[in-house]
């Protein structure tokens, strides 16, 4: 009887997650290019994995992905926390800011991509102009055209879009900290900074750990911004693992290699998450 009740969700899980994953696993051991055949063509063992890992851009894409996801998560958390702390103050206009803050998060990443393409435009874009005014040297190829700034530009767009998410979640978290705890700490002689770092943040640790994890996972799979802003270029300087996967599967139609890459990405991400969960949630119970 319990199985009957669980059946619908298990069926859905199998159909939507397990099946595609295992279909990809199967394909990853075959040579299969859609331009040559509608069917897998030959069993080649770990050939696809060797090709994916051995390609000249794989390590670069992995490095970019890690930079983007770790850097992006860290910057967004720090900025989001600062904004959240400001939001908890009784300042003029805070209510309006709270409403406006959610807006970037509601925009589709593709739209954000286009928005920033115009903002980065070397001929009259907003950001190059701002940087010029501030006497910050710009690369001659433009922000998106230079291999030194392309990845950072992608990260900046993502920071713009997702910092408010951190701010809102952390703000809600900070509000949930009981006043009495803060008052106890004040009577104990703690400074504002100590109260934030030693009382408030540890109390909302669960929320913090979960949003850090969520955002890291999303950033690890960043694809839309890369597609719209740089297409992984110039060269492969802003290529992420997800963009490589897209390139293999939907541009080169190399289903075998794309399937192998899917599994490589799933494995890397899950190993990182497993380590994170092991360390972060060790003393989960209070």
């Amino acid at each position: 009887m319990p199985w009957l009740l669980l059946a619908p969700s298990i069926t859905l899980l199998l159909l939507l997650i397990a099946f595609p994953l295992f279909f990809a696993l199967y394909n990853s051991f075959y040579f299969w290019n859609l331009q040559m055949s509608p069917q897998p063509m030959a069993f080649i063992g770990f050939g696809n994995y060797e090709q994916a890992l051995g390609s000249s851009t794989f390590m670069l894409a992995l490095r970019n992905t890690l930079l983007l996801s770790i850097g992006g998560t860290a910057i967004q958390f720090a900025l989001g926390l600062a904004i959240a702390v400001l939001l908890t103050q009784t300042l003029r206009g805070v209510t309006l800011v709270r409403v406006l803050l959610i807006m970037p998060t509601t925009i589709a990443p593709i739209v954000v991509g286009f928005l920033f393409r115009y903002m980065y435009d070397a001929n009259g874009g907003l950001l190059p102009w701002v940087l010029q005014v501030l006497f910050i040297p710009l690369p001659a190829e433009g922000l998106l055209g230079s291999s030194t700034t392309a990845l950072m530009s992608i990260m900046f767009a993502d920071v713009w879009q997702w910092t408010p998410f951190f701010a809102i979640v952390l703000y809600a978290g900070l509000l949930s900290v009981p006043d009495a705890l803060v008052e106890a700490a004040r009577v104990d002689g703690a400074s504002r900074w100590t109260i934030l770092t030693r009382i408030k943040l540890p109390v909302i640790k669960r929320t913090v750990l979960i949003i850090l994890m969520l955002r890291f996972m999303q950033l690890f799979n960043t694809f839309d911004l890369v597609l719209i802003l740089t297409r992984g270029g110039p060269g492969a300087s802003s290529r992420t693992l997800s963009y490589s996967l897209y390139q293999q599967g939907l541009i080169d139609f190399n289903i075998g290699v794309a399937s192998a890459m899917t599994w490589i990405i799933v494995l890397i991400l899950n190993v990182i998450l497993a380590i994170y969960i092991y360390i972060a949630f060790r003393d989960w119970e209070w």
């Binding site: 009981p178 009495a180 705890l181 008052e183 106890a184 700490a185 004040r186 009577v187 104990d188 002689g189 703690a190 400074s191 009382i199 540890p202 109390v203 640790k205 209070w286």
Partner: peptide, 19 residues
């Protein structure tokens, strides 16, 4: 400021730091 008064307070719900 509370910190400068050197008084200790016991709260109704104790306000112990849970972590």
């Amino acid at each position: 400021d509370p910190a400068d008064r050197d008084v200790a307070m016991v709260f109704q719900n104790y306000a112990l730091y849970p972590h």
